[in-house]
Amino acid sequence: MSTAVAPTTRHTSLGHLTFPRVVRSEWIKFRSLRSTFWTYAIVLILGLGITTLVSFSIPESVIGQMPPSARSSFVMSAASFGLLFGQLAVAVLGVLVISGEYSTGMIRSSFAAVPRRTPVFVAKAIVLFVCSFVVGVVVTAAGYAIAAPVLSGKGLDADFTQGTAWAILGAGLYLGLVSVFALGLGTILRAAAGGIAAALGVVFLLPIIVNIVNSLTDIEWLKHVPEYLISTAGQALAGGTNADFEPWQNVLIVAVWTAVSFVVGAVFLKRRDA
């Protein structure tokens, strides 16, 4: 008497994990974090709040004393003034996206599903960049919509030009890249406290330290160091200036900082145990 064996069916669709599915998984995790909502809310509130405060508080007498070159760019500068604080917020978020998984142990589940690890890291970077870019563009565009009518009533030219559009996109690009830069640092250091300290140190404290050293010394090459810092180039992308650099050069500076952090983070992610 023979025993019939029921055929087994392989659900290959469950075992075939594609990169779009990894991205979708990271998006679900990203949007479920409380820190995501609160970080972007802070960027929105601070960005629009500071722009509104600057636009309404600056007197017409000060505007009248501005040179023509400063008058033409001041509207965009006011619209992107909150970027100084927005970059700090998204830098913290970039660190928390990876360090939070290490602290809870969820990173081991991610790597169990995707043993190659790199797709997980790339997917995190894509989700983080796209979300930060969109928020940066929205906040800066809304800031311009607030600053333009207020400052035009005080005698400033607030016409929307091609340069204005590029500055709004540049602000979003910078927030997106600086968040990925912080993601790389968080992956290297793993700990939230260390990653946040490193990210804020590079973005916020490093320019201050370099300027202090420049004021105390007379080293010629050191005077050009601020031009190559990620925050200086990022502010230039949002309509500011950075020496005589062209916009593409400022993009390159920010991209190099981001690429170095991201590549080193990816190497550490592959070589160390979870």
Rank of each mutant, 00 (worst) to 15 (best):
A158P: 00
R21I: 05
P115C: 06
A78K: 01
A145Y: 02
N250T: 13
S109I: 11
T187F: 00
L53Q: 10
A274K: 07
W38F: 15
M106D: 10
L33V: 10
T140I: 08
A112P: 09
I45W: 03
V97Q: 06
G201R: 05
L128H: 03
I196T: 07
W248I: 13
Q87A: 14
T241R: 15
A89K: 00
V202N: 01
A182Q: 01
L269F: 12
L48G: 06
F30H: 11
A198S: 11
I107L: 05
L200D: 07
V5P: 00
T8M: 00
H16R: 14
W248V: 13
L17S: 07
L229H: 05
G100S: 09
P149W: 04
A141I: 07
F245V: 11
R190W: 05
A123M: 05
G163E: 11
Y144W: 15
S215I: 06
A158V: 00
L156V: 01
L237H: 05
R190H: 12
V130W: 02
L44W: 03
L93W: 03
V114F: 10
L151D: 01
V251Q: 07
L216V: 14
A41W: 01
S110V: 08
C131K: 02
L17I: 15
T51Q: 01
S32L: 09
A236C: 12
M106F: 09
V202H: 02
T9A: 12
S152L: 02
G49K: 04
I107C: 04
V254W: 00
S103H: 13
E227L: 15
I107K: 00
A192M: 02
A192C: 01
S77G: 14
T258L: 04
L222Q: 07
A192N: 03
E220M: 09
T104E: 06
A238H: 04
E246L: 15
W166D: 14
A274R: 08
G265Q: 02
A113L: 13
V135C: 10
E101V: 09
D218Q: 11
V22E: 06
I168M: 11
G176R: 00
N214H: 09
N211H: 10
V178A: 08
K270W: 09
A165Y: 09
T3E: 12
A193D: 06
